[in-house]
Design a protein around this nucleic acid. Structure first.
Lengths: 193, 193
DNA sequence: TTTTCGACCAATACCGTTTTTCGGTCGAAA
DNA sequence: TTTCGACCGAAAAACGGTATTGGTCGAAAA
């Protein structure tokens, strides 16, 4: 049962990555998983269902990766840096792999929007916690954690942008760290206060 | 000569704003400018040419607006805030006016890309100058002005994003100022250095 | 000489129709 | 419980013919 399901998901994942959601047919998936189309429907109730499962798995792996990276860093600042840089490089890899999907993303397709929202919510939670830790450990000087985490999210979105437009000659880790330098230190002269 | 050209541009601007580039025909433009289509071609060599001129004018006005706003502010910080908030509100207005165009933007059409690049180059120049002023007047503590201005640009791009996606319930001035608070002050605790 | 315009052209958008493809179902068989 | 061929309706692709559209040209106003 689960083995068959995995086989289908694996087949689907590759096809989605290569051709995108719409260009991949159930026939394709079935063939790649070595079974008849109607057999696929025995395991999944719809095409979107398969897609949702693929996304769910990817997201789970992504979040694990993020959590590992964050856990490996020790100071609150290092944790935030780890989070952001890991996130950016992973996204860069994804955009290379899911080449067709990035185009489909542009059009506002059904629950992709929702997946994104969920991820942003997750991201916000993580950032808030990291900021709170940093605040309690007296690393950060922040009043309104909600506002600051939102600002970091927005900055990340700005960092994300070139990944889908410029594409080449962009070093997300370098840029992320530059950005975080600014966010952590600010640019205002302090000595003469 | 120039008067006729302006008449054409004015007509074209309204039509482009209302219907977008592709749904506006040369016939439409000619009719609105009260002349025959071939007469329009006496003044402009192509439809894209007209569009380019419309954009050029809009951009010129936009830049004037920005320069006025910046000039009216007095401290370097206030100037940067004025720049960013003016920029964001103007963009918000634009996205309301050019409703069809925002969709067309998504597809990667010809020189829109170039216009955008030009604007980013302009923006970078302005930001660099403002940062340099601030540095010389000892308001800012920045080593590499190029990097910092780039980071501010990126942050702006993040602020821009909701304008074209979420659209509602978004206060660009508030968000811009929150972002600039972070950029100016940073979030790192300073007292214990 | 400068400006206007009707007539014209080639490329492509559009439109109604037919054909094919696709997501999904069903019942029989293994 | 699992597999599959046959089938369905809806939607997409293919198609061929017509209309529109961006752009040109040469003649006639001005």
């Amino acid at each position: 049962m689960d083995e068959k399901k995995n086989k289908i998901i694996e087949a689907a994942e590759q096809l989605f990555a290569q051709f995108g959601f719409f260009k991949t047919t159930m026939e394709d998936i079935a063939k790649k998983a070595h079974m008849a189309k109607s057999s696929v429907y025995y395991y999944f109730k719809s095409k979107e269902d398969i897609f949702a499962e693929v996304i769910r798995q990817d997201t789970r792996l992504f979040q694990q990766k993020l959590e590992t990276a964050v856990a490996a860093a020790d100071s609150p600042e290092a944790k935030i840096r780890a989070y952001v840089t890991t996130r950016m490089t992973h996204l860069q890899d994804l955009s290379k792999f899911y080449l067709t999907l990035t185009d489909e993303y542009l059009d506002h397709y059904f629950f992709v929007e929702e997946v994104r929202k969920n991820f942003y919510a997750y991201e916000n939670r993580v950032l808030k916690n990291l900021l709170l830790d940093g605040k309690q450990q007296k690393y950060f000087d922040v009043d309104d954690i909600a506002v600051i985490s939102r600002m970091i999210s927005i900055a990340i979105k700005g960092l994300e942008y070139p990944l889908f437009v410029d594409k080449n000659g962009y070093d997300p880790v370098q840029e992320s760290n530059d950005m975080l330098d600014v966010i952590f230190k600010g640019i205002e002269k302090r000595s003469n206060i």
